[in-house]
Design a protein around this nucleic acid. Structure first.
Lengths: 122, 122
DNA sequence: GCGTTATCCGTGCACCCGTACGGAAGTGAG
DNA sequence: CTCACTTCCGTACGGGTGCACGGATAACGC
């Protein structure tokens, strides 16, 4: 191996404790998936916008976020695939809004609080 | 242009409202940075482990997470660069723990709650 | 001082992801 | 029925990111 193998743990007790309380692989996949979805400027601001405006179509979203419609369309595609959005069709316009079961800790206000934390305490 | 330019907004009022309540570019950068950091299996589980065990060294962390030491070292490097960790040296062993100002909404328990939400309500 | 252990850092490679482009489907108006 | 409009989808390209490898640093014991 390239790196020393560290055969004997330094704190076996803590290692075992930490390992036993680690989340399941399934939860990790779910969480990283969700966080990856939020860790993008377009998608993050899109969530904010929908949280404020209830529902918006692709074109108006592009105007509000000041990005291309393609970018918004792609963002909506991913969020929809994750089941985070619900769509309503009115004629040729498709309105998007946050799904009813959208995780509350990921809604705009909570994230705003997080943003405040990261430059108030840090 | 390749895509219709959508010159006239369909809901100008909502667009303006959403745009005015959008977070600043600065906050978006900060938030996406933080979320990107969390959106990785190794780093996410590393946060969990440190939240549970208070402090651990690289080798023990690798044992607990069942990944290579290089992977842990790289994860620690990024988290440390973001100011999310504090280190304590005891002889040749360097113990890592979550920084005192580590954002509470990103600590283990809150994330666990988030994981629960995403398959309880969803 | 010397060897071993634990860890860090710089580099190169492969993979994933976001973006832009072109075409196509569905809807409403005349 | 034809045209204009809104939106979606498939594809190709560029950039960023995680990971593996090697060397280097610092500390303990003899």
């Amino acid at each position: 191996m390239s790196v020393t193998d560290h055969d004997h743990p330094i704190d076996p007790e803590r290692v075992a404790h930490a390992r036993s309380r680690l989340p399941s692989a399934e939860d990790v996949v779910r969480l990283t998936g969700l966080l990856s979805l939020m860790a993008d400027p377009v998608r993050l601001r899109l969530i904010y916008a929908l949280d404020v405006a209830d529902e918006l179509c692709v074109g108006d979203l592009a105007l509000a976020l000041e990005v291309s419609e393609d970018s918004v369309s792609y963002a909506l595609r991913l969020l929809r695939a994750a089941g985070l959005l619900s769509t309503r069709r009115d004629g040729r316009v498709i309105y998007n809004r946050l799904a009813a079961d959208f995780p509350a800790p990921l809604r705009g206000p909570c994230l705003r609080q997080l943003a405040a934390l990261s430059h108030t305490t840090g």
